[in-house]
Design a protein around this nucleic acid. Structure first.
Length: 878
RNA sequence: GGGAGAUUAGCUCAGCUGGUUCAGAGCAUCUGCCUUACAAGCAGAGGGUCACUGGUUCGAACCCAGUAUCUCCCACCA
């Protein structure tokens, strides 16, 4: 069977994914093994796979596959988030396209549409994750609004309420006029934007000739003004305090008050006080017992309290009122300035401060154990500096507004009868309580109504590590899998999600939800811009998978992605991943072309085999250590260069039969064994190609799959062998380089001489000679006791080497080269001698280090001597 | 306003507890090669005052102080 010279992931990836799934390799049930658990950060059902997901889930898959190879009971729980605001917006739009308005249908009808939408689109992203190779236990797929998760949410709410950690409060909140719901602080994104500052003149009620000029960015709210505030010490306004001014256009009289909140320097030093539409104004209003005039509707349009411009949207109203004020002659000036504007994370609408009655979680007491856990390193953060961010937020935590004026979500399990409030897990329970309190006889059930709001999406996410295992029902799964091992997520949701999960873990289970949090960076484009739909700079994830294959993309995502650091995505990296697949593929093709035969393994082959055996142990140990430290990209880079340089570049080249394809049985078998191990080591990173090669290499028994193989056993390493090969490779490179520099083609075979030193030479290693001759394309390789003056030379670890090239020597050039090397060697020796002569160094340095330095000094002296001899010989001969 | 981090090759970044075979990798560049697995390849090469200034130390890319530039987070004044 002829294999193409290029690896094609198409078909191969689908084949193996199905194979693994059919064999139920992703499935996990509690058993006696050690569990290794990850819960997925549930993607929104409105989402399609983007770069952030790919990065995130690649990392999770690597960790979970590695755990599986280590023999642990690996369990990766997938699922989706109902994404209250985002989904509701999508469904509203879908209905609008069908000519249906949300306001025209009932809550039940709307939810029916919404569930229908979810059924149709909600799991798309989970299928896209399969393309990436994600080895989730799909049987466990959870959804934040499915039965178990919904029950958990309600339980959590009722429990908190009973513990007195939930309350309703009438406060200034952030209102999203587009989604028509309240938002939590964390859902508002502030950004500096260009705005205008309007200076408007308010005339005194008693004397139209005197006026006060205020500065505002929102002139459309002047009708909601209830006072003008000035600083009590401001000399400009001293006489006016206590008097009244008229609001322009509507001529409403409002008092001038003094409040030290006002800054003298800003604007005109006079502040219009609008309690209904500004947090700080609200507080001023409270202090001065001012009324609250709300002139905005929930959609951001002006209501009848405004008296003018009723029904106009706030931004349209701003334009219009500007004209009106100008015509009235009260618009003094307009200044451009920059200010922070808060926008809704989901709809991007400018948020509106608004006074409203909402449900809150009393967060302060919950924060304490959550903060402690992280600072005592009971929960590890990666990168560590995220701890500071976390602490700052935790120490200044504000109560969490959890109610939302939406339909899609978990309806607040609170019920009202007249003015009485009943909170219970079911309507029946609440009803029972209500009747008990009110009295059965006078009870009118039609007056018994449930709270119309739903809960913040994050109120279901924060118990996700608990609810996916049905932890509130004390399940066996929960006991086995919780706490989970690691959470992999972006740092942008550290407050929205991570911090709250930790709080929830301690609140209900008195145990952390995960041991470690691996924060990934944001995926950015080459210009460092965050990838976003609106910029159009985000590549289509599926198209990428099609083009480069999942393994290629996984390689690309990971190869430049340290924890926490942002990833500058470049398709080139995926291309490099694809090339790597091709390299592996061709290594396999080479091995498959060999004809194993009963013959003795040559000495040089034996040397290479022994070396590779050591090298694999070394690479496994080192890469394992890196993964343990969560340095995944470094681990991958290490494995990559090992495979490319050592395995393909040296090992296979060294063993490759020159003309015939015959090879000794031992070499053949061992090579396959090595390749097996390499596949296993690489598998977590690039699962598809490794499984494919695994099966191409030889016929496997049932269940003998790369995904379920086991890691190489750790052994102590023979470092002298590793050093020996390093010297051999050095000699080979230098020999080739010298020929290259002198334009001697590689197929011109030339002799190499090794100057014997007291420690002998590399040729004392069995097989070294043959190996050097073969790899460096030499005619011969022998030792010598004297200097070869007409040859090109180079210095190895301990020996000097001469390569005899068919050229005439440039003596002067050679001398300069030697002098430079001598200079360096002198400095080197000198610095070590100084170091060793230093009492403080000898007293403080570890013994290991001193030994190492002593050895370095010896080597240095040998080199120096050899160099000097060469220079001497060169001078005498010429 | 408060806080965190960064500054190393043309670009993107490694460099763990200070120790001159550690100043590294990948990409890019240059030179030579279609050498029987791979041109998505092979053999090589060049390139850095480790932001700046001091200090600690026998020794500093690494520790300390200051300066400059940049990034991010939090809080927010109309």
């Amino acid at each position: 069977m002829e294999l193409a010279s290029r690896y094609s992931p198409t078909g191969v990836e689908q084949k193996w994914y199905k194979y693994w799934e059919d064999k139920k390799y992703f499935k996990s049930v509690p058993d006696s093994r050690e569990p290794f658990t990850i819960v997925i950060p549930p993607p929104n059902i409105t989402g399609v796979l983007h770069m952030g997901h790919m990065l995130n889930n690649t990392i999770q898959d690597i960790l979970i596959r590695r755990a599986r190879l280590q023999g642990k009971n690996a369990c990766w729980v997938p699922g989706t988030d109902h994404a209250s605001i985002a989904t509701e917006a999508k469904v509203v739009k879908m209905l609008r396209d069908q000519g249906i308005r949300k306001s025209d249908i009932t809550r039940e009808a709307f939810l029916e549409h919404a569930f229908e939408w979810k059924m149709k689109y909600g799991d798309i992203i989970l299928f896209q994750l399969r393309r990436l190779g994600a080895s989730c236990d799909w049987d466990r797929t959870a959804f934040t609004m499915d039965e178990v998760r919904s029950k958990s949410v309600i339980k959590a709410f009722v429990d908190l309420y009973k513990k007195g950690k939930l309350y309703r409060g009438n406060r200034m909140i952030h209102w999203d006029p587009e989604a028509k719901t309240v938002l939590s602080n964390e859902e508002v994104i502030y950004k500096e934007e260009n705005a205008q500052l309007f200076h408007i003149r308010y005339a005194l009620q008693d004397d139209p000739n005197i006026s006060v000029t205020i500065a505002t960015q929102r002139p459309e709210t002047i009708m909601a003004d209830v006072a003008i505030a000035v600083h009590p010490d401001d000399p400009r306004y001293q006489k006016l305090i206590g008097q009244k001014v008229l609001i322009p256009l509507i001529q409403k009289a409002i008092p001038i008050i003094a409040d030290s909140y006002v800054e003298l320097e800003f604007g005109t030093g006079a502040l219009k006080v609008t309690p209904a539409h500004d947090q700080n104004d609200y507080e001023i209003g409270m202090r001065h017992q001012l009324e609250v005039v709300d002139i905005l509707n929930e959609d951001g349009s002006l209501n009848s309290n405004a008296q003018i411009l009723i029904g106009e949207d706030r931004f349209a109203a701003r334009k219009k009122i500007k004209k009106l004020l100008d015509e009235a002659g009260v618009l003094v000036e307009i200044k451009d300035y920059q200010t922070n504007i808060g926008r809704s994370e989901r709809t991007n609408a400018v948020v509106e401060p608004r006074l409203s009655l909402q449900w809150y979680v009393d967060s302060k007491q919950m924060a304490a154990p959550a903060l402690k856990a992280v600072f005592e390193n009971n929960i590890e953060f990666l990168p560590e500096n995220m701890k500071n961010t976390y602490r700052h937020w935790m120490e200044n935590i504000r109560d969490w507004c959890i109610s939302r004026q939406l339909w899609w979500g978990h309806q607040v399990p609170a019920y009202y009868y007249d003015k009485e409030l009943f909170v219970a897990e079911t309507r029946e329970e609440a009803l029972f309580e209500a009747k008990k309190k009110i009295g059965e006889s006078s009870f009118d059930e039609s007056l018994f109504i449930q709270d119309q709001d739903v809960l913040d999406t994050w109120f279901s996410s924060w118990i996700w590590p608990i609810s996916v295992f049905d932890g509130f029902s004390d399940s066996a799964d929960f006991k086995y899998y919780y706490p989970t091992n690691v959470l992999v997520t972006g740092w942008d949701i550290i407050f929205l999600w991570v911090a709250r999960m930790i709080m929830a873990g301690y609140e209900w289970m008195n145990e952390k939800p995960f041991h470690k949090v691996y924060f990934t960076g944001m995926v950015r484009d080459k210009q460092r811009r965050k990838m976003s739909k609106s910029l159009g700079n985000s590549p289509d994830a599926i198209a990428l998978l099609d083009e480069f294959g999942a393994d290629g993309v996984r390689f690309g995502m990971l190869s430049s992605s340290p924890a926490g650091g942002d990833l500058l995505f470049d398709e080139k990296l995926c291309d490099q991943g694809r090339s790597f697949c091709n390299k592996l593929w061709n290594a396999m093709r080479l091995i498959k072309s060999w004809n194993p035969k009963e013959q003795k393994t040559s000495m040089s082959d034996q040397l290479v085999l022994d070396w590779m055996e050591e090298r694999i142990v070394e690479i496994y140990t080192e890469s394992d250590r890196l993964i343990e430290q969560s340095k995944l990209s470094e681990a991958l880079k290490l494995i990559y260069s090992f495979i490319w340089e050592d395995f393909c570049g040296f090992y296979l080249e060294a063993l490759k039969p020159r003309e015939e394809h015959f090879i000794s049985l031992e070499v053949f078998d061992k090579t396959i064994l090595f390749f097996d191990k390499i596949c296993t080591i690489l598998h977590p990173f690039m699962p598809f190609i490794t499984e494919e090669i695994w099966h191409q290499l030889k016929d496997r028994m049932e269940g003998e799959d790369c995904m379920m193989s086991s890691y190489a056993e750790k052994k102590t390493m023979n470092t002298s062998l590793l050093d020996g090969i390093q010297e051999i490779r050095n000699v080979i490179t230098q020999s080739k380089d010298l020929r290259n520099k002198h334009s001697i083609k590689l197929n011109v075979e030339v002799p190499l001489f090794i100057h014997q030193s007291e420690q002998g030479s590399i040729l004392s290693v069995k097989g070294a000679k043959e190996l050097i001759i073969k790899m460096a394309k030499l005619s011969d390789c022998t030792t010598t006791d004297s200097d070869i003056s007409n040859a090109q030379s180079f210095i190895g670890l301990r020996n000097k080497y001469y390569i005899l090239l068919p050229i005439t020597m440039d003596v002067e050039q050679e001398k300069i080269k030697l002098l430079e090397e001598i200079k360096y060697a002198l400095g080197f020796v000198d610095s070590i001698e100084k170091k060793l002569a230093n009492e403080r160094f000898m007293a403080n340095a570890a013994k290991d280090l001193i030994d190492k330095e002593t050895k370095k000094l010896q080597d240095g002296h040998i080199r120096l001597k050899s160099l000097k001899e060469s220079l001497h010989a060169l001078s005498i001969d010429n």
